[in-house]
Computed example of a mutant assay.
Amino acid sequence: MKKLLLAALLIALIVVAGGLWLIRTNTLAPDATASLDGDADAGALIFAAGGCASCHGTEGGSEEERLVLAGGHAIDSDFGTFYTPNISPSEAGIGAWSLEEFANAMVRGVSPEGQHYYPAFPYVAYSRMELQDVADLWAYMQTLPESDTASRPHDLPFPFNMRRGLGLWKLRYMPDGWVMTGEDSPERGRYLVEAVAHCGECHTPRDELGGLITVDWLGGAPNPSGEGSIPNITPGALDWSAEDIAYYLESGFTPDFDTAGGSMVDVIHGTSQLPADDRQAIADYVKAVPAVE
């Protein structure tokens, strides 16, 4: 009987240890960012492409107010309501962080305290970013205004308020490569769409656990607000030319002389600041992506 109890205890310890290992945080190597020097001018373009101000800046504010990244925007979901945090360079934001901590947040979804971030923060896409671009973004964000506004806690019911389980979620959904591969995938456009601009986060449907259904990549999805849907932008539904798409990303005007609305207004506010070659690269990628009917 004693041997049986010891064996059961040993098995239990192994199960617990295995479970803790599976839900652990996975961070970058300690020296991954040590040799990187950020370029704030280059970081301004990463900031624009990523649309950071649309989630963290003052909604509907002036250009200066949009750059006060106090957060507080509500993101409704099937799992509860998430609130975007203060990411300004203040003590209430991320002013006390190091570049290493910022990089771990961006590409690993791990906080400086070693906790998992919820994937309402699109680190699934950002995990594909080059660390030099992360360093450039970090350098630019240090130049922005400070805000002392405290970050608002998320409003999530049990069990979604338990962050540890996100370790298992990451094992299932964190990508180990690009969605679109092969010679037909425009490299620059793929980097912008799949990583920095995280277009798939809105335009791709999700499964019951909130993971992207990549077989329907960019094929449209329900609007998280519950009003309407996010459109299918693959060639299976969007018949615009690459030039039409590039112009839309610059001006907000469609080929039918309509104008962008909803959250695309903020997206285009960012893409309009990019070099013309980058907008064309995004357009070329969208035209090359497999059609979803």
Rank of each mutant, 00 (worst) to 15 (best):
L4I: 14
L9R: 03
I11L: 15
A12R: 10
I14L: 15
I14P: 00
V16T: 14
V16S: 07
G18E: 09
G19M: 04
G19E: 05
L20R: 12
W21L: 14
L22C: 07
R24D: 13
N26K: 08
A32W: 04
T33F: 06
A34L: 12
L36D: 02
G38R: 02
D39W: 00
D39V: 04
A40E: 03
A40L: 03
A44K: 13
A48H: 04
A49V: 10
C55I: 03
H56Q: 05
E59D: 10
S62I: 04
E64G: 05
E64S: 13
F79H: 10
F82L: 12
F82Y: 15
S88W: 03
P89K: 05
P89T: 09
G95S: 11
W97L: 11
E100P: 01
E101V: 07
F102V: 13
N104E: 08
V107N: 09
S111C: 09
H116F: 09
Y118S: 05
S127V: 14
R128T: 07
E130I: 04
D133Y: 08
V134D: 08
D136R: 06
A139K: 10
P145Q: 08
E146C: 07
S151N: 11
H154Y: 11
F158D: 07
N161T: 02
R164V: 09
L166G: 00
G167A: 03
W169M: 10
W169G: 00
L171S: 06
R172M: 04
P175F: 06
G177V: 07
W178F: 04
V179H: 05
V179F: 10
G182F: 02
E183F: 03
D184N: 15
S185T: 13
S185D: 14
E187A: 15
R188N: 11
G189C: 14
A197T: 02
H198D: 13
G200F: 05
E201H: 07
H203Q: 07
D207A: 03
I213K: 09
V215Q: 14
W217V: 05
G220E: 09
S225M: 10
P231C: 01
P231D: 07
I233G: 03
A237R: 13
D239K: 15
E243M: 04
A246Q: 08
A246H: 02
F253Q: 09
T254R: 08
D256H: 10
F257E: 15
S263N: 11
M264G: 05
H269N: 13
Q273F: 03
L274M: 13
D277C: 01
A283Q: 01
